[in-house]
């Protein structure tokens, strides 16, 4: 046909959408943190309006709260980093053709990790091995949160369009290059979703660390219950919930930002 024919219709390039469009998502992203800040403000005002006895006053100093919260964040962060460092390479390995045979076995192990209640695992560590404190808690958290990341890594890698891989291979990309340039970037959204799940699980489960001297916001909750000080437990619980929502929110933003363009 003619040289000048215009080929089919095409969506306009995504370069110049209405200028405001780029900022809208950020306004949406700010809404939740504002709400969370208001919740914290309400909690602070409520606690401040109560007469505190000596036990409550000791548990609810800014210093104690700051320390337990920081410890909680540390537990979550360390265990999540370990989970990612463990589960992503394992997921890659388990999707290579030469490991087909071990897949079932390893997935079962990971499943057990998630099926056994964390509290049970922590108790086991403490009673059977005298393993207590921060690192014991980390072990429990990792065991529990490995599965979502492992599973998503595998699902993400296996979900990559085989035609894309064949094209890459057919062009002369080596196995490593196919993995690094095609499979991993294309699996990133699914892997990130798994990491986000693991993070949220870890924020929640880290409250259990209190039982084995691992620290964290759980300490407030447990101390409040054992001394019958409702206000202390409430503070611990609200702070945990706020932290979980915030972490989930931040992880969601990270997902959007880290997702490869063009998908």
């Amino acid at each position: 046909m003619t040289a000048s024919t215009d080929w089919a219709t095409v969506r306009p390039p995504g370069t110049d959408p209405a200028r405001g469009g780029r900022w809208w998502p950020w306004i949406g992203r700010l809404a939740l943190p504002v709400v969370l800040a208001l919740v914290l403000l309400a909690l602070w005002l409520y606690v401040g309006s109560q007469e505190l006895d000596s036990i409550e006053a000791r548990s609810l100093t800014a210093e104690t709260i700051g320390e337990t919260a920081a410890r909680h964040v540390a537990l979550t962060a360390v265990s999540t980093v370990l989970v990612v460092a463990l589960a992503v390479p394992l997921g890659i390995l388990l999707t290579r053709p030469f490991t087909r045979r071990y897949r079932g076995l390893l997935l079962t192990v990971a499943n057990i990790g998630q099926a056994v209640p964390t509290i049970g695992l922590l108790a086991l560590l403490a009673v059977a091995f005298f393993f207590l404190g921060f690192w014991a808690a980390v072990v429990g958290l990792v065991a529990y949160a490995v599965l979502p990341v492992l599973r998503n890594t595998m699902v993400g890698l296996e979900g990559v369009d085989p035609a894309v891989l064949e094209a890459g291979k057919g062009m002369g990309l080596s196995g490593r290059q196919v993995l690094r340039r095609l499979e991993l970037p294309l699996a990133v959204p699914v892997i990130l979703a798994g990491i986000r799940t693991a993070l949220v699980i870890n924020v929640g489960t880290a409250t259990l660390a209190a039982y084995i001297n691992g620290g964290g916001l759980g300490t407030l909750i447990v101390a409040g219950f054992s001394t019958n000080r409702f206000l202390v437990s409430l503070t611990g619980a609200v702070l945990t919930a706020v932290l979980a929502l915030l972490v989930d929110h931040l992880a969601g933003i990270a997902e959007d930002v880290l997702k490869p363009k063009g998908l």
């Binding site: 369009d161 035609a163 894309v164 095609l182 363009k261």
Partner: peptide, 22 residues
Amino acid sequence: PDQLRRRIGYVIQQIGLFPHMT
């Protein structure tokens, strides 16, 4: 095989463009 394939152009029915690359 990798060296060989770099000398041979390859087009498949599903095209297989890399969606995350321009």
